[in-house]
Every structure is written in structure tokens, then in C-alpha cells.
Design a protein around this nucleic acid. Structure first.
Lengths: 202, 202, 202, 202
DNA sequence: AATGAATGAGGGTTCATTCAT
DNA sequence: TATGAATGAACCCTCATTCAT
């Protein structure tokens, strides 16, 4: 009936985020109830509202948080790549690694855009476009210096991102191929799709 | 209070399918109520049950119907392609054209697998795998005769299908590029991704 | 689980109105739950929504309906009174009789104005002002022809209406005095309060 | 997280009383939450329970406190009136002045009797009857010495009190008439209602 | 084949209250 | 004395579904 000994708000909030992420990714935002989230955390539904004002706010926080983390992570990596071919290779490996690592968040970010209320949608969409812009910049640079043959940079970027992200739909850890092997395959396919190929290791 | 003048059962069922498809695709299965579907058709919720035993049955029928139609359509086309390169090109053009044509059904088929009850999921999944098998066969043939350089046929097939299907997420008729122009771009990218390229038109 | 044999919508709606009126009047709008109303009618809470879109709509309908009925009833009576003294006497008797007859609706109309959402409040308030206007007209006429001594017609009308309506707070049928006896007392007090008195019966 | 700098228990309790009074009067007891009260005071809901054991206790304290203060104030005035006409005039002026001064408490005392639990109701009701008895005594005295013509003293007392208290429903400071002007009107009406009139000022 | 009235479960959210801190 | 995290009950309302009509 009251605070349980040892309960700490920030930890509960973290647990709620984690439980909601997992459940939303598996069953979809609309199909998950606040009671289910609470049960996964080990509290009652009402207590969720000490940490998040509404269910929609949980979703927003998860999606915005994911996109910001994704962009931040890429920006910490991208500075290393000058050569467009290396940059595309780096982007593919980064994207696959990150997306398999945070499979639930990625899945959510692609599947539940429609569950966001207009304002939240705009915020997330802006971030998503920014991330896609990172790939477009690489393609544009490679296109300009002749490394890539890209008929259309925006279309090419969407095609490659879709190809990579599709991984999340079927990849399961412990399957026939490991992450590295799969990343290798995708690097070759992505480079091939823009008319380039991996530089032979020196 | 009874049958509406001029109503014919099969027409109502068709209207229900169409309305449900549209609504499920836009808002998600879980987020659409039987009342919404009924309202879109112009009847009351109770009348839906004269045509479909449950909401889940509407979903199943839509998804199975879509996959069967998709496979049927491809099989009517595929016999024409002997050469793997031509076959891949044909597959890409077919998939894009079909998917943009039936955008809602495609979207549903990819998004709502998780909303299917186990039996229905298995039925739809079997069909989906069959369709993916069609592309795998092309890649395998091209790989065998040296036309393609594919590190892993199943992975390659998934990558290409994801790339193509991703189109549905962002393509809007009337945009900067038409369907044919986009298909052209994707043909080149898909071929490139497996180390091939369009044969110069004779 | 479905419609019960013999259930008729209009009858259920009437029962809901009656039950809600009784409960709102006794416990207050905010303190009455939809489940309580449903239980009083003998149905489940969800079924209420086949008849009224929201709880607020029940309240609005009760209050608007009451005010319209009240005004309608007075207008069917008032034409009979030419003489202001007789009109005031008629008004007092009418108001008391009507208010004791429909004690719950009257109580609601005076107590739950604050529970109405803005639009609904305006609608009810307009009707209430119209009714008060009926008494103001009587006072004004009597004031003009010297029958009454009224320092301020609007204030006088409010004072008399409050006096009469206050009856509802304490009058209980079967008490020491019957309705007619009480009406007689109030007629004298109301007339006295505007400096008039009952004409001696001829 | 603990006592706020400079906070003094009795001040907080007073603030709570004031905030609850205001909110209860405006929205009704049932429609006001402990969180709203706490927010109005600038503390959290839990802290209210350091000052009042339950929400009901706040209401009881407000209502009992108001009735006791009202009775105390009248008793400090009433001794001055020997003559019944002057006493009734004094009562009217006192009641109006006091009620407009403490409009929220008065409103609460008349509106929320039904929100009191049985024991608390009895306590408040006893006080209310005592206060009404003060007016009854005046009417009885005036009736006995021929100053008033009252058909029924208890009914007359209720009628006059309702008339006066009704003021609270519509009077707004700053309106067309000031408190004194209105009190003047009500004095005349109240005296008239019992067949008396203001003595001409000597 | 359609309606309209019902159910029982459950939705998101708020409530008064408790209690470790 | 105040906070913030929790409870369990209840809130209004919507759900898929049923069935008399």
C-alpha cells in the first residue's frame, strides 16, 4: 500500500522503459496494456503514472531516446571515415551492429511511427530524416568523386537503409551465421548496389 | 433493421475486406475496432458477423489472400525468364509494381504477422517463405552459372526483398520520381548488390 | 451476453434517465458512477453507452429536459393570469407544486450547474434565465400598476425564487404540513415581500 | 524532502483549509482530489496527511468550523436586539453580510451536507438547526407580540433563510448593486413577508 | 442480412491513502 | 514535516462478440 523499502524512482523508471520497449516491440504499442507493462516491472498499473504521465509518453521517450542515441553513436564513429567507400562500409557495419544490438528499439522506431501523436511524430521523424541524411551525405560524396554509381542519392539511401534494417525482421542470434559474417555480406551487397566494391585489404 | 435494399452478401463481404485492409494498414490491427470497420462499410458492427466469424478471421483472410495472389501473379510471370539476370530484373520490376499497386495488403502482410494467432501465422508464414524461395531460386541459379556473386543466397534474398519492400514505407505516387524510374534504379541496385549489371539492350 | 428478450431501447433509455436523476440528486453528479446507474437500471455499465454517449450527456439531457418542461408547464398556465397579484400567487403555487412534484430534477438543476461543461452550461443557463424572466415580468407589471412595492425587480425575483426553491431542501411529504398548506404560507410571504397581500376571496 | 525552510505546521494546516474551502466550494467535494488541494497549497498529496487524517476530516472541520463561527458571530450581535422587528432586520443584515463575506464556507455548508459521513452530518446538522432556531425565536417573539403575521414559524424561518442564502448563488461583488443596497432590499422583503415593515427612521 | 441492445472483460487513468526516506 | 513511490479500488469508456428482433 505504500512505497516498498528500497524502491528508487530512477530505477523503476528505467525498468518501465525496458519492459515497455520489449513488450511494444513484440506485440505492438496498441496491443500492450499499461497493466502488462506494470506486471513486467513488478508493480501495479497506477504506479506507472508516478514515472510517466501517459502511455504515449513512454512510447515517445523510447523512440526519441533511441533516435538520439543512434545519431549520437554514429556521429562518434563517422569522423573516422574520409573515403566514401570506407564510410559506406563503416555505415553498414555500424548500422547492422547497432541495430542487432538494440533490435527492440530499432523495430519500435520503424513500426510505431503511426502510433505517435502528431507532435511526437514530427519530433521522431525529424531525427529519422537526420539519420538518413548521414547516409545520403556518404552517397553524395562517393557519387561526386566517382567512387559510386548512384542513379539517385535519396532513393539509393532509402534502398540501402531498408535493406539493412530488414535484417531485424529475420536475424536471430545463434542462427547459421553470426553478426560479423552477415555484416560482411551486407557490406558487399551495399557497395555492389552503388557500383563499388570492397578495397582489397592491403 | 434487416437486409438493406439491394444488398448482396458477397458485395458486403468484399466491402468489409476492403475497409478492413485500409484501416488495418493505416492504424494497425490492434488499433482498429470492429465498429470502425463497420462504420467504414456503412453497417453496424453486429452485421460484420454475418460475413466473418471473428476479427481475426478478417485479418487471416486478408493476409492469406494477399500472399496467394502475390505468388499466383509471380508464377504467371516467372516462366518467361530463363536467364537469371533477366529473372532478377523481372522479379524486381514485378515486386515493385505489385507492391506499389497493393500497398496496403503488402504493408499488412509485413506488419501484422505478429497479430496472427499461431495457426494462421503458420499458414501465412509458409506462403511468405514460398515467395522468398522464388527469389532464392533466381539467386541460386545465377550463382551457379556465374552470373551473380552472392556470398549467401538466403541472406542475399532477404536483403533484396527488404530493400524492395522498404519502398512502401516512403514512396508516394505523384512524387519526384514515377514508378518506372524508381524500378529502374532498384533494378540496377539489386543487380549490383549481387555483382551483376543490366545487359545493354541489344 | 446479448440482447435480452423483450428489451426495448426507448424503455431502457427512460429507465436510465430516471435512475440517473435519482442518484445525481441524492449523491451529486461527481459522486455517482456509471456502474451505479447501470446497477439501478439492471444492466451493465457498458450498455449505458448504447443510449447515451457520455455521462455528461445524461446530465445535460436531464437538466435541459427539466428546464424545458418547467418552462413549458408555466407557459401553459400563465396565460390565465392578467392581474399581477393573481399572477404572482399563481406563480408561487405553480412553482411549489411543480418543484415538489419533480423534486429531484429541480434539485439537480440548481445544484449541478457547475458540473456542466461550458456549452451545456450555457444552454441550461439560458433556460434558467428565461424562467426567472417570467417572474421578473410579473413583478415589473405589478410594480408598474402599483400593486407591488419592489425596490428592485431583478433582485426581488431572485429572492422570491430562492425562497420558494429552498423548500426542496427541507420539505418531506407526510410531514406536519401538506403541500397546499405550505403553498398557502408561501403565497402570503411572497406577496408580503413585495408589499401586496392576497385579495380577500369574494 | 523534509520540512520546508520556514514552514510552520499550523500555517500549512491553515493553507490547506483555505485551499480546500475554495476548491470544494467551486467544484464540489467529490470532484476535488487531494492532489488538487495539495497543489493549491504548494505541497504534495502525502503531506496533507500530516495535518488531516482524511479528506472527509477536512470537510468536517470546514463545515463545523463555519457553523460555529457563524453562530458565535450572531450571538455576539443578537443580544443587542430587543424589538423583534429590529431583530429581524438585524438578522437579515447580519446574515447577508456574513454570507457574502464568507461565501465559500456558506456555499459549502449548504451544498455538501450530503457528502458528510453520518456522524459528521449529525454534528453539522445540529449546528445548522441551532442557527435556524435563532431566526425562529425572532419570528416567534414577533408573532407573539403582534409585530409579525406568521402563519407558521418554522416554515417562515426556512423561507426567509432560503431567500437570504440564495443571494450567494448570484451575487457578485462589483455588480450593479452593492452589498448595502441589496441588504436594504432584502430587509424590506423579509419584513414584508411576515407582514411587517421597516420603522421609519426617527 | 441487418439492427440495436446487451455482456463481460479490459482499456488508460485517477483516486485516497500509506509509508520508507 | 515533506517527498515520492507505491497500492488497490475505482473511474469513464471501448472492446469483440452475441442474439432477439
Amino acid at each position: 500500500m505504500a512505497r516498498r523499502a528500497g524502491s528508487i524512482g530512477s530505477e523503476t523508471a528505467r525498468d518501465i522503459r525496458a519492459a515497455a520497449l520489449r513488450l511494444f516491440a513484440r506485440h505492438g504499442y496498441a496491443a500492450v496494456s499499461m497493466r502488462q507493462i506494470a506486471a513486467a516491472v513488478g508493480i501495479r498499473a497506477g504506479a506507472l503514472y508516478n514515472h510517466f504521465p501517459t502511455k504515449q509518453d513512454i512510447l515517445r521517450e523510447l523512440m526519441v531516446g533511441h533516435m538520439e542515441a543512434l545519431i549520437g553513436a554514429w556521429e562518434r564513429e563517422s569522423f573516422r571515415f574520409v573515403d566514401p567507400v570506407a564510410a559506406l562500409e563503416g555505415f553498414v557495419r555500424f548500422h547492422i551492429r547497432y541495430h542487432l544490438d538494440k533490435a527492440d528499439a530499432v523495430f519500435l522506431a520503424y513500426m510505431e511511427l503511426r502510433s505517435l501523436e502528431p507532435d511526437n511524430f514530427r519530433a521522431v521523424d525529424r531525427l529519422r530524416q537526420y539519420y538518413e541524411g548521414c547516409l545520403r551525405k556518404i552517397l553524395a560524396r562517393g557519387s561526386a568523386d566517382g567512387a559510386f554509381t548512384v542513379a539517385d542519392v535519396p532513393v539509393g539511401a532509402m534502398a540501402i537503409i531498408a535493406m539493412l534494417t530488414g535484417l531485424n525482421c529475420w536475424f536471430r542470434a545463434g542462427g547459421r551465421l553470426g553478426v560479423d559474417a552477415i555484416a560482411e555480406i551486407y557490406v558487399r551487397m551495399a557497395l555492389g548496389s552503388v557500383g563499388a566494391r570492397l578495397a582489397a585489404p592491403a
